Simulated scan of single mutants.
Amino acid sequence: MVKKTGRPGYLQIADDLRKQINDGTLAPGDALPSIAELVKRYESSTGVVKSAIGVLRTEGRVIGQQGKGVFVRDASEAGAPGEPNADDPLMKQLSEVLAAVRDLGERVGRLEAAVYPATPRSDRPGK
């Protein structure tokens, strides 16, 4: 489930899927769950799920096959013709920007948690 931490939902989903890829829960060649399944799992919108998958595509962790789905990429396939190359200076810059956005999202989440402590819905007046 996407949490209200101040960190964008698509990055939270991308982080979770990335963790599953890194720990082997999703192995190279495995298909990611369908967008509909991910929407239910993360209680999010289709656009948010697609953005999360887009982040993983940009990182070269997954690859889409038209009409078949999105699959976890084998790390040794990185650098295939027509695919982003991790050694490309532009890809390095993009990775740095994504890391900075991730860090900023976490920092904003911590600030919001400190400034706006969560209260149960029943305790809020008028809700």
Rank of each mutant, 00 (worst) to 15 (best):
D23A: 05
K50Q: 15
E43I: 07
P28H: 08
L38H: 10
G29D: 05
L11K: 03
D30W: 07
Y42E: 11
Y10S: 12
S34E: 11
R7W: 06
P33L: 07
V48W: 06
E37A: 15
L17D: 00
V55I: 10
I53C: 03
G54P: 04
P8L: 09
A31V: 03
G6L: 12
L38I: 09
I21T: 00
G29K: 11
P33E: 11
L38M: 14
T46V: 13
E43L: 12
A52Q: 04
K19L: 06
T46K: 15
T25W: 00
E37H: 12
L11V: 00
I21W: 03
Y10R: 13
V48S: 13
K40L: 14
L26K: 01
R18L: 14
A14C: 04
A27G: 03
I53A: 02
L17E: 00
K40N: 12
D23G: 03
S34L: 10
Q12T: 05
L38A: 10
G24W: 02
K19C: 04
S34H: 08
V55E: 04
G24C: 06
P28D: 04
P8S: 10
Q20C: 11
V39L: 14
K40S: 15
I35W: 02
P33M: 08
V48G: 10
G29M: 10
P33T: 08
G29I: 05
G54L: 02
P33H: 09
V39E: 15
Y42G: 14
A31C: 06
S51G: 11
A31E: 10
L17A: 00
R18P: 01
G24Y: 04
Y42S: 13
D23T: 01
L32Q: 03
V39Q: 15
L17I: 11
V48P: 03
K19Y: 09
L26V: 10
P28V: 07
